[in-house]
Design a protein around this nucleic acid. Structure first.
Length: 575
RNA sequence: CGGGGCGUAGCGCAGCCCGGUAGCGCACCUGGUUUGGGACCAGGUGGUCGUGAGUUCGAAUCCCACCGCCCCGACCA
């Protein structure tokens, strides 16, 4: 394509709406345009990138034996009532009413629709396993859309669903899809990591997330550099070498009041006393769905893992207590609360680490006071529940027992695969006839890829001060031919047109910059847009039969003979 | 939904405190000079100042309400 034919809308300044680097660059390069909160138009140049990502995804899905179909974006309420998710999904689902007052949603996902298809089309074990996928627009009414297409409300997703006669078959396909996902992200040229994950609201058993590694990522990942262990911190287990009580040292100090007039945070109290923050214990006040007030105890430098604690008895859908609730239950304002001397019917949940501590420091349940030298069994009862309720931190022992130590990094979730088992098939009576002529619910798997999010994630990982640096597989164009003086020099025009024609004929995705612009503008545009390879044709070099080549990522200029330019570029762009 | 900030030309902003009929840079149009790293000169187009209702002789500016957007916390590809 020629730039004179391509709609290009590059900007020197990014709109004030953008915060994240990838978002700014996408706007500046004119890839996307915002219509409303979480709603983006893919402009021609951006759409080319999106299509490239889709192409890689489709090719690997097809290779993995999945078949493409396309389901409606709008889905009837009745289907969602069968699984009970019409209500469970809640406000995140965009609900629509038609002229007959019938209710629909704009699909946030398609388990219900595909299961409806499977139960009517797949009758016999002979038809299983089957794996269907689509690439489609989804809508989720996010609480807070942000970062452009990274967390948009309307977004492009590839979702696949597999159906099986047995769990073994599901596991086989799950492994195949795991491999296919790895190939997708490898082909896209992204640094990524697959991690064990929580199954969340979708339900089921096994699950892995695929993350593009980036500092701007919203997820924290724990991995072991010396083994293959990797998990989302939501899931990563904090283990101890022995039971907490066996590790606990004997008390050596008497419990004493400490005057802490302004110190409410553990780190401040520790600093005041001149001890490490790991000597302190913080109490977090929670309220269960049943209205029960609960105290969770964590070491001062640790953080509560909300996913882990929600899995404990009665703790599902807990919330943080309000200041008033804290005052009512403990007769003390937040900042000085602790587990000592509290009403005996307040349930105390201690993290494993806390249960192993002795002579610790905690809030005194008196304004402006903390306690030091506190010990379980002596100064307060043993906690009602001892469990792993914290996020792992750098340096924690790796839970796979191979002796490694965990490290943390950030990632952007771009893929998620689940073993759904029979949650949906049972709810929707999606059964098949077995070899023994019995009826059985199908085992199911589901596999998502955030196609539009990948574009933003790729930019987070591949950019510099000048703009985007596309990985080869998703670049809107592989090569930019910049003709300096196209409208002035017959020689330049002839050489540029010829090389362009040769590249097009050779099947190379080439963009000829034939605008009557100053070279600086053309270079800056091609760099901002992130085209991986650039050939510059200008009078000076051309007089010697040469053209100039620059790789976007390296930035070093090489002179090559015009006659060899085609072969040179073909060699560079071979994927 | 709670907390913070912002809505003035396509984009980035000033003007607002102290009311007097809207300005700068980029972009865009015309002419000319330029042409290897976002050119220069001259002229020009484009704004119901988010919306509505008030106060006032007069409102971008003051008051009230609403709407939208962004950032920080609870959702997920």
């Amino acid at each position: 394509m020629r730039t004179s034919q391509l709609f290009i809308s590059t900007k020197k300044e990014a709109p004030a709406e953008a915060e994240l680097l990838s978002h700014k660059l996408m706007l500046r390069a004119g890839l996307i345009k915002r219509l409303g909160s979480g709603l983006y138009t893919w402009m021609p140049l951006g759409l080319r990138v999106l299509r490239k990502v889709e192409a890689v995804v489709r090719s690997e899905m097809n290779a993995a034996g999945a078949q493409e179909l396309l389901m409606p974006a709008v889905q009837p309420k009745e289907l969602w009532e069968e699984t009970g998710r019409w209500d469970v999904f809640g406000p995140q689902m965009l609900k629509i009413t038609d002229r007959h007052e019938r209710q629909f949603c704009f699909g946030p996902t398609h388990e219900e629709v595909i299961t409806d298809i499977a139960r009517s089309e797949l009758r016999s074990y002979k038809q299983l396993p089957a794996n269907f996928y689509q690439v489609q627009t989804k809508f989720r009414d996010e609480i807070r859309p942000r970062f452009g297409v990274m967390r948009a409300r309307e977004f492009m997703m590839k979702d696949a669903y597999s159906f099986h006669a047995s769990f073994e078959s599901l596991q086989q396909t799950y492994d195949v899809m795991y491999g296919a996902y790895s190939k997708v992200f490898t082909r896209l040229g992204l640094q990524f990591r697959a991690v064990a994950a929580d199954t969340g609201a979708i339900g089921g058993s096994g699950s892995h997330e695929f993350h593009v590694l980036a500092d701007a990522g919203e997820d924290l990942l724990a991995y072991c550099p010396t083994s293959d262990y990797a998990a989302n911190v939501e899931l990563a287990e904090a283990i101890m070498p022995d039971s907490p009580s066996a590790l606990r040292a004997a008390a050596t100090q008497a419990m004493t009041d400490v005057d802490t007039p302004k110190q409410t945070a553990c780190a401040d109290v520790a600093a005041l006393l001149g001890v490490g923050v790991e000597r302190t214990v913080k109490a977090i006040a929670l309220v269960t769905v049943a209205g029960e007030f609960v105290l969770a105890l964590l070491r001062g430098d640790h953080n509560l893992n909300e996913v882990k604690i929600a899995k404990l008895e009665g703790m599902a859908d807990f919330r943080f207590a309000s200041d008033d609730e804290i005052r009512a239950a403990l007769l003390c304002p937040p900042g000085f609360i602790g587990p000592v001397g509290i009403n005996a019917d307040i349930r105390v949940i201690a993290d494993l680490t806390v249960a192993a501590m002795s002579d610790f420091i905690c809030g005194a349940n008196k304004p402006k006071f903390h306690l030091s030298g506190v010990n379980f069994g002596r100064d307060l009862p043993e906690p009602h529940i001892v469990a792993d309720i914290r996020n792992v931190v750098n340096g924690d022992v790796c839970p796979d027992g191979k002796g490694g130590v965990l490290e943390l990094c950030r990632g952007i979730e771009v893929g998620h695969i689940f073993q759904l088992r029979t949650k949906y098939s049972e709810a929707m009576n999606c059964v098949f006839v077995t070899e023994q002529n019995t009826q059985q619910a199908m085992e199911m798997g589901c596999y998502g890829i955030g196609v539009s999010r990948i574009v933003a994630a790729a930019i987070e990982q591949n950019h510099d001060a000048k703009g985007i640096i596309w990985p080869a597989a998703m670049a809107p164009f592989s090569v930019a031919v910049v003709a300096v003086g196209y409208h002035k020099s017959e020689a330049v025009k002839a050489a540029a047109d010829q090389l362009y024609a040769q590249l097009v004929a050779a099947g190379v995705d080439v963009l000829l910059d034939d605008r009557n612009e100053r070279p600086g503008s053309m270079f800056a545009d091609m760099e901002l847009i992130g085209i991986p390879h650039r050939v510059t044709i200008g009078d000076k070099a051309l007089a010697e039969g040469m053209v100039e080549y620059v790789a976007r990522r390296e930035g070093e200029m090489k002179k090559i003979a015009l006659s060899e330019a085609l072969a040179w570029i073909q060699a560079q762009t071979k994927i």
